[in-house]
Amino acid sequence: MINILGQIMLYVNNQDESLKFWTEKAGFILISEADDGQGMKWFEIAPTKDAQTRIVLHNKDLVAKMSPGVNLETPSILFFSDNLDQLYKDYSDKNITVGELVNVPEGRVFNFADNEDNYFAVVEKKYPL
């Protein structure tokens, strides 16, 4: 039985720049980092230190060489925010590319792009659910 979604693997072209984006602009924190000394390194990030699901930034080219069958496409991720207006303003003020705030059946939502033009969405939702 699966109990929780633990990590989302995000394959990026530039790990250091992606780490900067997620921590300095998007407000995530660095949970851990690893480097095997042979070129394989990764960064584990999350919106809070106690978040149960975390994102791991991996080097896309290296993963492609090591595991040719892995799907390296960006996953479609939907984040939750209990203060969507403030988050939208914060992201806009930090020059993050944001889409319009729109209403969908789940509530109000907007999308944003990371430093590599991967798009993600945020919906207004109180947490815990």
Rank of each mutant, 00 (worst) to 15 (best):
K65L: 06
G37K: 11
G69D: 15
K60A: 00
G27S: 07
L84D: 11
T74C: 14
P105L: 08
D61T: 07
G99Y: 05
A26M: 10
A46Q: 06
L57C: 05
S76E: 11
V98F: 04
E73S: 13
S67Q: 12
I29N: 09
T74R: 09
E33N: 11
Y11V: 00
R54G: 09
D16Y: 14
D35W: 12
D85H: 13
N103G: 02
G27Y: 11
E100I: 05
S18C: 15
G39F: 09
E17S: 15
V12T: 06
Y11Q: 00
Y11T: 00
K20I: 14
M66Q: 09
E73Y: 04
P75M: 10
A46T: 05
V98L: 01
P47Q: 04
P75I: 10
Q38V: 11
T97C: 04
Q52V: 10
T97D: 07
P105G: 07
S32Q: 14
F21P: 04
I31S: 09
E33R: 08
V102R: 07
K49T: 05
D82N: 15
L19R: 15
L30E: 12
I96E: 01
N71C: 07
K49D: 09
F43V: 03
Q15A: 14
W42I: 00
F21T: 05
F43A: 08
T53Q: 13
L78A: 06
L72R: 03
N103K: 14
Q52C: 03
N103L: 13
V98H: 02
D93L: 11
T97Q: 11
K89L: 11
E100P: 01
S67P: 00
F79P: 02
L19N: 10
I31H: 10
E24S: 14
F80N: 14
E24W: 04
S32W: 06
S32L: 08
G39E: 12
I77C: 06
I96D: 01
L87I: 10
G37Q: 12
A26V: 04
F28I: 05
G69S: 13
L62D: 01
L57V: 05
A64I: 02
A34G: 14
Q52L: 11
K41D: 04
V56L: 13
N95Y: 06
E24R: 13
L72T: 05
E73T: 10
P75Q: 07
W22A: 12
Q15Y: 07
V98W: 03
V104Y: 05
P105A: 04
V12R: 05
L72V: 02
K25T: 10
A26S: 06
P68V: 13
S32Y: 08
I77S: 04
S81P: 11
F80T: 13
T48E: 08
I77V: 14
G39Y: 09
E44G: 01
A34I: 06
H58C: 02
M66R: 10
N13Q: 04
Q38F: 15
F28C: 07
E24F: 05
V12H: 03
